[in-house]
Computed example of a mutant assay.
Amino acid sequence: MKALIGSLAGVALLATSAFAQTSNTTSSTGSKTSTKTMKTRPAAKEGTPAEEAKESPSMEAKEKAAAGHHRHHAKHHAKKKMMHKSMTKKAATTTKS
């Protein structure tokens, strides 16, 4: 019984998507539209990135620490860049007068 209901629901979903694709086409004969079917993605795997890449927990910890180190330097660089930008803007406004 559950299989019957499931298959009917699947057919209904496929029929509605097929109907929606055909109802959005234009009726002009001068333009040609290509009908491409969309590819569906496989279901995402459940798990941590370490399990998916077959990495050890210690290697994962090292990578996380390296990413944090990189993020720290990136923030510092962004702060310096903004300070330089604001200083040049102030210098340009004061030299005009």
Rank of each mutant, 00 (worst) to 15 (best):
residue 24 N to V: 15
residue 19 F to M: 09
residue 32 K to S: 12
residue 49 P to C: 01
residue 60 E to N: 13
residue 3 A to I: 07
residue 66 A to G: 00
residue 35 T to G: 10
residue 88 T to K: 12
residue 84 H to Y: 05
residue 40 T to W: 07
residue 52 E to W: 05
residue 65 A to I: 04
residue 65 A to R: 01
residue 79 K to E: 10
residue 81 K to I: 06
residue 15 A to E: 09
residue 60 E to H: 12
residue 9 A to D: 06
residue 80 K to L: 12
residue 41 R to Q: 09
residue 70 H to E: 04
residue 85 K to N: 11
residue 66 A to D: 04
residue 15 A to Y: 13
residue 36 K to T: 15
residue 1 M to H: 11
residue 97 S to Y: 08
residue 57 P to I: 02
residue 78 A to G: 02
residue 15 A to P: 04
residue 60 E to F: 10
residue 30 G to R: 09
residue 9 A to S: 06
residue 79 K to R: 13
residue 80 K to G: 05
residue 24 N to C: 10
residue 51 E to M: 10
residue 49 P to N: 02
residue 76 H to W: 07
residue 65 A to Y: 01
residue 32 K to P: 05
residue 74 A to T: 10
residue 11 V to F: 06
residue 5 I to H: 15
residue 51 E to D: 15
residue 61 A to T: 00
residue 81 K to M: 06
residue 13 L to P: 00
residue 67 A to C: 00
residue 5 I to K: 12
residue 84 H to D: 13
residue 7 S to K: 14
residue 12 A to P: 01
residue 51 E to F: 05
residue 13 L to H: 06
residue 72 H to C: 03
residue 9 A to Y: 02
residue 88 T to M: 14
residue 61 A to Y: 03
residue 80 K to H: 15
residue 73 H to T: 04
residue 58 S to Y: 10
residue 80 K to C: 09
residue 63 E to L: 11
residue 13 L to S: 07
residue 70 H to W: 04
residue 49 P to R: 04
residue 63 E to T: 06
residue 24 N to R: 15
residue 9 A to E: 13
residue 87 M to V: 05
residue 12 A to Y: 06
residue 10 G to T: 08
residue 53 A to W: 10
residue 14 L to Q: 07
residue 5 I to W: 12
residue 26 T to Q: 11
residue 16 T to W: 05
residue 10 G to D: 13
residue 72 H to G: 04
residue 18 A to Q: 02
residue 2 K to R: 11
residue 37 T to W: 01
residue 18 A to N: 03
residue 77 H to R: 04
residue 77 H to A: 08
residue 54 K to N: 11
residue 71 R to M: 01
residue 46 E to V: 13
residue 72 H to T: 09
residue 30 G to Y: 09
residue 13 L to Q: 07
residue 86 S to Q: 15
residue 53 A to E: 12
residue 24 N to M: 13
residue 24 N to E: 14
residue 92 A to M: 03
residue 73 H to K: 03
residue 4 L to W: 10
residue 21 Q to T: 11
residue 49 P to S: 04
residue 46 E to S: 12
residue 4 L to R: 11
residue 88 T to N: 13
residue 92 A to D: 11
residue 74 A to V: 05
residue 74 A to M: 02
